[in-house]
Design a protein around this nucleic acid. Structure first.
Lengths: 212, 212
DNA sequence: ACGCAACAAGTCAGCCTTGACTTTCTCCCC
DNA sequence: GGGGAGAAAGTCAAGGCTGACTTGTTGCGT
């Protein structure tokens, strides 16, 4: 849905070809949703079919292709843009990335390996954060700043959770094996009310739990 | 990818039908990825075709359908489960929800309306947080706790960003219209280095910026 | 003048996902 | 003892999305 918004928004600045639109999107790197070329053409065609855009073909252009499809926003397209914009800003959905599923089954791994994997993840988070910051350091449009800020907020939240979780698993490990070759660093007074390790029936794969 | 992991993980506890698997997933509500019924059957069939599962048909069962398809994890499936689990825990991707795109075009709305929309969003975030907490309050498996914690971390990050952004836009608005009927509350000493409102050329729709 | 690498512009088969539909069975109420 | 609500179990067409492919056009080195 926000992909349509993106295209409509870019077309507000004037008619463009699909190729140009795609180039603009990828030029901004991490900041936006990734919108593949094929998808751009698909969405443009659909928007045109629904009346939000008109297509004109430019025959004798100095471009490399002898004819290219140029998309122009209609009045209805303008309206659609604003409606979509409102909807996108108003609505909130949590993004399920899959780490939740991973965590639920983390107990099936050797605890030492689990911690090592989470540390690899931390490296990945740091790397991604660096990319975002580098890619957006040249951006000074204030609203783009807010978008960048949002992205960084999420990355930082992931980082905080990760560090807390790693600490938590480390202390668990130490309680289980106090004689381990622990290179553990901090006793970690958890910031949040750290999850209590109470033993309870595992609902992970019980088909009869909560039948509704 | 984590959808396959989810199914394989649930099947580790024993053979199940697609229907049972789907019921287990939806029973856990917000916590996991949403996995629609049709998709479950599709993924199971694909996993079976690739040798991770075997299918057996149970003819004279006391079930409602006279024959149901029962999926069982193979040794290869076990291996795949662990490989996927490692990959899911190790890899990190930022989740693009679309609010970034929304923010970039927020300037095309009346500032007062923009703030109102973000406040609606705040309500949505609060509501979602309440749902997550209510749905998972009965969960005491320690690893599920960690997954829940992750979700809450992301929601809280969204909340922090939202409040900061609303404050920021409010002060901008007041600087522009100091005589407005402001019901504004706090002068808001921003926590982060709040984004400076420097005026700069708008890259939003420039087809020639950063050609690579 | 020639070949070849890169870019402009777009197309397409095929995979993933979803929502809506079907069929059978059970339960329960009148 | 009939019939309607609902659960069990699954199917399917259609839509969204992607990666790999095509086809012209420059530009450039030799």
């Amino acid at each position: 849905m926000h992909k349509e918004l993106h295209l409509l928004g870019l077309l507000r600045a004037g008619p463009r070809t699909g190729y140009e639109l795609h180039r603009i999107v990828v030029a901004h790197g991490e900041l936006y949703t990734d919108l593949k070329k094929g998808n751009v053409y698909y969405l443009l065609e659909r928007l045109a079919a629904s009346g939000a855009l008109t297509v004109t073909t430019q025959p004798g252009a100095p471009g490399p292709r002898r004819e290219r499809l140029i998309y122009t926003l209609t009045d209805d397209g303008h309206r659609r843009f604003h409606d979509l914009l409102r909807a996108v800003v108003r609505d909130y959905e949590v993004a399920h990335t899959g780490i939740e599923v991973g965590m639920v089954f983390l107990g099936t791994l050797d605890p030492v390996e689990a911690i090592a994997l989470l540390e690899e993840r931390r490296e990945a988070v740091l790397a991604r954060r660096a990319v975002i910051e580098r890619e957006t350091c040249a951006v000074h449009n204030p609203h783009q700043r807010l978008a960048e800020d949002h992205l960084l907020c999420l990355v930082d939240a992931e980082m905080i959770w990760l560090e807390r979780t790693i600490r938590h698993l480390r202390t668990d490990l130490q309680h289980a094996h106090p004689t381990a070759d622990s290179v553990v660093t901090a006793p970690a007074p958890a910031t949040h009310p750290s999850p209590p390790s109470s033993r309870c029936p595992d609902v992970t794969a019980n088909p009869s739990d909560r039948p509704i």
